[in-house]
Amino acid sequence: MANSVVDQDQRLRRPAGIRSVWLGDTKVSYVPDGAVQGRPRDWLPDTTDETWAAHPEYLDASGYLVASIGGLLVERGDRALLIDAGFGPQSLPAEPGSPNGAIYGGALLDSLAELGRRPAEIEAVAFTHLHIDHLGWAWHSVPGGDRPVFAHAEYVVAEPEWAQRDLLEAGGTTKEIVAALAPRVRTVTGDQEIFPGVEMQITGGHTAGHAQYVITGGGTRLIAFGDALHSPIQVDHPEWGCVYDDDRARSAEHRRHLVAELEEPDTIGFGIHFADVVFGQVRRDGDGPAWRPLNA
């Protein structure tokens, strides 16, 4: 038991590697691209110094939260969907006054190759939202060339997110990035199946049209909840918002609903920024719900 606790604590402080789960005939895999550090009091401003003194297992040696960056590959037979596209082949150092520490991407194409997939085989890239750490490889060209990375993919975006895309420019989603995406965007106006066994559900809150994806197969559902939650510690405290949430009240309401859904039987969660515990289940332990990582 002691060794499993130590291993879980280590996983909370490192970026995720490739991890996969099977839902019947559907394979779902985390595709690593990079990571970002978050200053804990800045990222989760409802927390206190006492919060983190009581939970040092979430912080790396520099005192940062560690958030993975990547995508979620959904494979069914020969078909493949990617949810989110990482940060891309770039890095930024920590900036004084920013909620973030260092951020980097670049590994997603190698991760896809390790999973046996070429970018040309991805039929669609579906976005949870249009922040730059979810768009990277969708607007960058093939390294050393000028062709799109996902040559045959359409880009699936919730309609309210696309309609209010100009609001995202302050967060780094520039007009140049939007222009690169625009010719291939298909908007979805409501809850809708976008791939066999994959339904987009528009949740809002974090951004105007933030979406989650519910993937079902083999009697199990997986909820890829995007940036509704940034750290597993929020599962215990869904009232704690993130500095990047556009609508704090709506985000908190959705988190409470989401945590209750994740407690239901035969339900798995996928937290794209959840360090190396991206796949997990919510189980009650003591006073409230808690994230229980899968050993996928």
Rank of each mutant, 00 (worst) to 15 (best):
T189K: 10
A224C: 05
L12N: 01
A16E: 00
W52C: 15
L135I: 05
I103A: 03
D42V: 09
F195T: 12
Q90F: 04
V74W: 03
E193Y: 02
A153H: 00
A85M: 08
E264K: 10
R165T: 07
A102Q: 07
G145K: 12
A2F: 00
I268C: 05
I202D: 02
V198R: 05
T26W: 00
S111H: 13
R147Y: 03
G63S: 07
R117P: 06
P119V: 02
K27S: 09
A153I: 04
A85S: 06
V282M: 01
G17L: 04
R41P: 10
S111I: 09
G144C: 07
G88R: 06
L72S: 05
E193D: 14
A113T: 02
I223E: 09
P96W: 10
I215V: 06
A163Y: 03
R41I: 12
A180Q: 13
D246V: 15
T267C: 06
F225R: 02
E176Q: 10
H273D: 13
W240G: 14
P148F: 04
A124K: 00
E199N: 15
F274E: 07
A260H: 15
S251A: 15
A67G: 12
P265F: 11
Q90S: 08
I215P: 05
A85N: 03
S4G: 04
W240C: 13
D25C: 11
A94R: 08
G171K: 05
S111W: 08
V149L: 00
D42Q: 10
S29D: 02
T128R: 02
Y244F: 15
W240R: 15
E253R: 11
L115F: 07
T207L: 03
G145I: 02
W291I: 11
G38E: 01
S29W: 00
I18P: 06
E263K: 09
P148L: 02
E154T: 14
P93E: 04
A208D: 15
G171M: 01
V178C: 09
D60W: 03
D7W: 00
S4W: 03
N100R: 11
T207P: 09
N3D: 07
G86I: 11
P45F: 14
G24E: 02
D7A: 13
E154C: 08
D84C: 14
R41M: 15
V21S: 07
E75Y: 11
